[in-house]
Design a protein around this nucleic acid. Structure first.
Lengths: 257, 257
DNA sequence: CAAGTATTTTCCGACTATTGGAAAAACTTT
DNA sequence: AAAGTTTTTCCAATAGTCGGAAAATACTTG
């Protein structure tokens, strides 16, 4: 278990990467002060780093509005993240079918660090207002996707991941004790699906199953999410069959993502 | 006209950003040596910078395959680039309709720096093999989109942009002289559409019109691209009407992108 | 519209993270 | 198991960063 070197945590690069993340929090543009305050960097430093990011196209600056925004270079790069394009072309249509059939929002999530990331989403015909945009991050312990991913990963890896993590109480139903989580994961492994019953957001229930793609190092899950008033936990579980079918289908076609 | 400061061109940040671009060229992963060579940085430097990028989630490293790839953080960020999500939801369906009706590939391009960037694309039903993936960059002077964007931008801005640019001869038909380009742009302004007749790629013809979105600082164009053997220049021009209609439609709905 | 306030940009000496050649370590191949 | 290749680490000189504070610019208000 190599300690895998000591990546510098000071210097401009980490600061620059941090500023990119900060700018992500201002979708409609951030003023200089916003960036400086949010990042808690001295103004002089912020200024210098921002200038570099701008000059390389990673950040756009509008002289008119005096706003900084993430640049198109980010957009460009994201389409070169291995096989991201296949998500739209392969996974989305399949997910759309699932959403249409079940009437619920379908979400494809992937483990990234200690969170889950929304890779793709398909809305059902009926307009609902559950907001999980693509690119959103969600906790592991309070979501169906997170739990099913945790449950199905190798024990060693899971322990490594959970070590020292604390589980924030997001709603009244959130599992917050490691012991309770272990019990839940054990149970999930039995049925190979996970349910989150208003554990991450009051008023939302969801169910998820693992997605296994050939030659993919990524841990993914396919989920259905619905407003609680629309479907009981029991009825949601009835969808597990079609959900699992879809997940298998996606897994077979999402080679090496 | 402020010279807008002196952004550092040395140091880790520029190097890190460069490595991200380099990794974009290896969609299926790059070995350490690939990165080091392609970037022309000393191995020690490459190593240190890569480690920092990895530790911040911008680059993934697989111990098994020993390959570096762009990380999901990039994917995440790209969905926070102002209103990128609306492209899929708003523009794509409209473009798909255009592609279906005309039988040609529809492309939405945006000016970024001295190039054009493919923002969105819709394929026609019939399978064609013109490859312009989303995220691809194309020259301004040899493409329909590039030319129509140049033609319709304020003169001052255009001069600023073209100043010192040299126009690479991509195919036998490419316009390479500034003077010829000016003449062409003049003509484009008359009809408000541009045609590229195998100017960027032998065997491909395309036509483009401007897309004007409310409160958008971006310069965009909507294009149709087709294999030359499928359609004559004359017939392609006949599509300008429906193309323009679609462009207007998109412009109206793509607020503030 | 001038004075006052808030925001953004620049300056510069002290300091510290970066640099990169070269050697060591870890793999791969023969 | 030796030879070759690729990756990782070391370390002292150096060059870029740091950030407080002042200057410049934009915005507000009486």
């Amino acid at each position: 278990m190599a300690s895998r070197i000591t990546p510098s945590d000071k210097g401009t690069l980490p600061k620059g990467l941090m500023l990119l993340r900060v700018l992500g929090e201002f979708p409609s543009g951030a003023r200089f002060t916003d960036v400086s305050q949010e990042s808690e960097l001295p103004v002089a430093t912020t200024h210098r780093v921002l200038a570099t990011l701008v000059s390389h196209g990673f950040v756009d600056y509008s002289e008119d509005s005096r706003l900084y925004t993430l640049g198109l270079r980010i957009f460009e790069l994201s389409h070169k993240v291995a096989a991201v394009n296949t998500l739209n072309e392969i996974a989305l249509p399949i997910m759309k079918k699932l959403a249409d059939e079940t009437g619920h929002m379908a979400l494809l999530n992937v483990l990234d660090g200690t969170e889950t990331l929304v890779l793709e989403r398909a809305e059902p015909p009926r307009p609902i207002h559950v907001q999980f945009p693509v690119g959103a991050r969600l906790p592991l312990h309070s979501t169906a996707s997170g739990k099913v991913i945790l449950a199905t990963m190798p024990e060693k890896e899971r322990n490594e991941l959970l070590k020292g993590m604390k589980f924030q109480k997001v709603t009244g139903n959130t599992i917050t004790k490691r012991k309770d989580l272990n019990t839940e994961l054990e149970q999930i492994r039995e049925g190979l699906f996970a349910v989150a019953d208003e554990e991450n957001e009051i008023g939302i229930r969801s169910i998820a199953v693992p997605v296994v793609a050939a030659r993919s190092p990524r841990r993914m899950a396919l989920a259905l999410a619905a407003p609680a008033y629309l479907i009981s936990k029991k009825d949601l579980i009835k969808e597990v069959k079609v959900l699992r079918q879809t997940a298998t289908d996606i897994g077979h076609r999402l080679i090496a993502f």
